[in-house]
Amino acid sequence: MSTRRSSRSRLGSEMVQVLVGKEQRDFRMHKKLLCRTSVFFRNHIEAAQQESKTTKSESEDSVLWLPEESPEVFELFIVWLYDRRAFQAYVDSAVEKASRNRHSPTSSPSRISPARHSPSRMGTTRHAETTDSERRALRWNLVRLHLFAEVIDLPALQDDSMDALQDLYLRCDWDMSPGFITFLYGDCSLDNAVRLRKWAVAMLAWTLHGGDGTSSEFEKLFAVFPKLKADYGMHFNKMAASKADLRIKNPQLRLPMNNLRSEERLFGFRQCSFHSHRSAVGEGVCPHLVTGQEDSDDMETGSTLMGEDIISEEEDEEKLEGEAGSSDSEVIITPVCDMETSFLDLS
């Protein structure tokens, strides 16, 4: 039995129709995978099935509607859910593209090109405006993916999106902007954005002590958002107690371990500093290094997040025996079929 056939058999044949956004963009996903992955989806699918029975609907698939979510963000979720390697490859590629022309995520077209009205520069300016828009779109999609992961209670997805956001800021050499702080403290609930706020405050301290000249704007935000001022004071005191130099301790920099030597701690943050499991891991190994890098056919989401195995021991042994003969093309086909023309394409 091929890897693709065995993977599909483990996923089952029942599908769920998910309508995303106010425009109700249509996605069809495996019911078994969604239910095993998230209690949020399991409860909503069961409720939809009960309603279908009550109304005697003839629809074969369960239907869910997520009116407040973005189709672009949901595409990212689907790729992550079905194929972690494809998700990581996309993020790496998108971050690489975003870093080629590094501007502030809040740059205006006039800042991108002062000579924008020159006929000889029109093509260059238009390209700069486009690439800057793509960078900002990628940043917001990663932020909203993190928030969506909190809503559906998927800590591993939260952590992956946080890692990607840190990488994006590092590669683009971005500072923390007043607009982003305003969004996190003015528009987001603490429950959904707690780790984003923690990272943003660390970024804010690094930005201000780097002397970028915007301290007056943030002083106004401290007055508007007392919680921001409290979080900043707590972070500042913690860094002072550890004798960290805020001018060089960069929150964009994820050091590839949690058990760091003294000199390493001066320049960046532990790998899991802004992860959902930070307090449980301590200085140990990030659990994503053990479970998060497995092949999509392992269906890691079911075994690690829900405490249940989608793959039985017998199936897993069968998979391992046939693994040597499997090819890279033998993977689960995700509902995002045409990646070249999807919303994920930033080319």
Rank of each mutant, 00 (worst) to 15 (best):
N141V: 02
T131C: 04
H127S: 10
D163M: 06
R144C: 04
D132Y: 05
T130N: 14
P119W: 04
A156I: 10
L147M: 09
S120Y: 01
P155A: 12
V143G: 14
D132I: 06
D159F: 09
A156L: 01
E150S: 12
D132V: 12
A156Q: 02
W140V: 01
M122S: 13
M162P: 01
T125V: 13
R121A: 02
L157N: 04
A156M: 05
S161E: 12
T124H: 08
A156C: 09
L142F: 07
Q158G: 11
H117A: 05
M122T: 13
T130P: 03
R136S: 11
A149Q: 05
D132S: 15
D159H: 06
T125N: 14
T131F: 01
M162Y: 06
A128G: 01
T125S: 14
L145N: 12
D132G: 12
M162R: 05
S133T: 12
P119V: 08
L157T: 02
E134Q: 15
S120M: 01
F148P: 00
E150M: 00
Q158Y: 10
R121Q: 07
L138C: 04
R136A: 14
G123E: 02
L142Q: 10
L147P: 01
R139F: 02
R144E: 13
S118I: 12
R139M: 11
H127Q: 07
R135C: 02
E150A: 09
D163F: 06
S120N: 01
Q158L: 04
T124L: 01
A137D: 12
I152F: 14
D159E: 14
P119F: 08
D159W: 11
